[in-house]
């Protein structure tokens, strides 16, 4: 594949249009990226793409952004990563900046306020729905430590107002300690 201007233009247009027309975040855009880069453009093979998605899911940040960084990097190194990231980030950047300008004018509008007030209930329900599925997945594994981390992190965040970054770091450390402990015990037996 030639890394000429046409290649970069296709890469940019692909990521830009995927990002501009995908509602619903990472879980929607990632399969569409697979379709575009694996099936349509044939730039990446299936197995490679699955590896890239696995890495992007275990890294911090938005999955859509992470995956496009990896795809760009895989195809054309750092310049490729920059172009594909730009393509992915520009649509939400432009749209939300524009909305933010209008928000000041329309947040006092009675109709908008009634709609937003109604939608608070919808958003709350959507998040409860997501949390229910995620928590059920954790509890199903029947690991006491996981359940304790979940409860502890909830209390720390909701009632104690502890900085979220500390909670993330602490639970990662507990997880690492737990695995090391389990490994040692196994070796001794």
């Amino acid at each position: 594949m030639k890394k000429d201007l046409k290649f970069y233009r296709t890469l940019f247009i692909s990521t830009f249009s995927l990002s501009a027309f995908t509602f619903g975040g990472g879980y929607v855009i990632v399969p569409l990226m697979r379709k575009k880069f694996v099936e349509k453009l044939k730039w990446i093979d299936e197995e490679e793409m699955i590896n890239l998605i696995a890495i992007s899911q275990s890294s911090p940040g938005a999955i859509a952004v992470n995956t496009s960084i990896l795809v760009g990097y895989k195809l054309a190194g750092i310049p490729g990563a920059l172009i594909s990231t730009l393509g992915t980030v520009l649509p939400p950047l432009i749209i939300l900046t524009a909305i933010s300008f209008v928000y000041n004018q329309f947040k006092d509008n009675a109709v908008v306020n009634a709609a937003l007030k109604g939608m608070q209930a919808g958003i709350a329900a959507v998040i409860i729905d997501v949390v229910y599925d995620l928590a059920a997945g954790i509890i199903k594994k029947k690991r006491a430590v996981s359940a304790i981390i979940m409860l502890g992190a909830f209390i720390a965040a909701f009632w104690l107002d502890i900085n979220v970054a500390f909670i993330i770091l602490a639970s990662g450390a507990i997880g690492a300690a737990m695995v090391i402990y389990r490994e040692r015990k196994r070796r001794r037996v």
Binding site: I149, A153, F154, A157, A170, G172
Partner: peptide, 8 residues
């Protein structure tokens, strides 16, 4: 589990 708790 921590991530789930934070979202909750």
């Amino acid at each position: 589990p921590a991530v789930v708790a934070l979202i909750a």
